[in-house]
Computed example of a mutant assay.
Amino acid sequence: MSEENQPQEGGQQFALQRIYTKDVSFETPNSPVIFSQPWEPESELALNSNATPLGDDLYEVVLSITVTTKTKDKVAYLVEVQQAGVFFAKGFQDQELGPMLGAYCPNVLFPYAREVVSDLVSKGSFPQLLLTPVNFEMLYQQHQAQRQQRAQQAAQAEQEQAETTAD
Score class of each variant (00 low, 15 high):
128 Q>N: 12
88 F>G: 06
131 L>P: 00
164 T>C: 11
15 A>P: 14
92 F>A: 08
146 Q>I: 07
122 S>I: 10
89 A>L: 09
4 E>M: 03
43 S>V: 01
107 N>V: 01
113 A>W: 00
134 V>R: 00
4 E>G: 05
136 F>Q: 02
94 D>A: 14
50 N>R: 08
165 T>Q: 11
44 E>N: 15
2 S>I: 07
105 C>P: 15
14 F>R: 14
63 L>D: 02
108 V>G: 12
42 E>P: 03
135 N>F: 02
67 V>L: 07
28 T>D: 02
33 V>H: 14
98 G>F: 14
134 V>H: 00
58 L>E: 05
56 D>E: 11
51 A>N: 01
70 K>P: 01
16 L>D: 12
58 L>P: 06
158 E>T: 07
157 A>Q: 09
159 Q>P: 08
138 M>H: 13
53 P>C: 02
36 S>D: 11
76 A>T: 10
86 V>R: 00
80 E>K: 10
107 N>M: 09
21 T>G: 10
109 L>S: 09
84 A>P: 02
51 A>P: 02
107 N>C: 08
17 Q>T: 15
149 Q>V: 06
8 Q>L: 14
148 Q>C: 02
142 Q>C: 01
102 G>S: 13
61 V>A: 03
49 S>V: 05
46 A>V: 13
5 N>K: 10
133 P>M: 01
142 Q>V: 05
55 G>A: 01
141 Q>M: 10
112 Y>I: 10
151 A>L: 15
96 E>L: 08
73 D>C: 03
4 E>H: 04
89 A>S: 15
29 P>Y: 03
80 E>R: 06
35 F>T: 05
135 N>L: 04
18 R>H: 11
89 A>N: 09
101 L>S: 01
115 E>Q: 15
113 A>S: 07
81 V>R: 08
111 P>S: 07
37 Q>A: 15
165 T>F: 02
59 Y>T: 06
75 V>R: 10
110 F>V: 09
18 R>L: 11
87 F>T: 08
26 F>M: 15
37 Q>Y: 09
112 Y>M: 13
11 G>T: 09
34 I>G: 04
81 V>Y: 15
27 E>H: 03
149 Q>L: 11
119 D>R: 00
21 T>R: 15
18 R>I: 13
104 Y>F: 15
73 D>T: 02
153 Q>V: 06
165 T>I: 11
73 D>Q: 09
7 P>K: 06
83 Q>E: 15
116 V>C: 04
13 Q>H: 14
120 L>A: 12
7 P>M: 12
141 Q>C: 06
117 V>T: 07
90 K>Y: 03
66 T>W: 01
17 Q>L: 11
39 W>N: 13
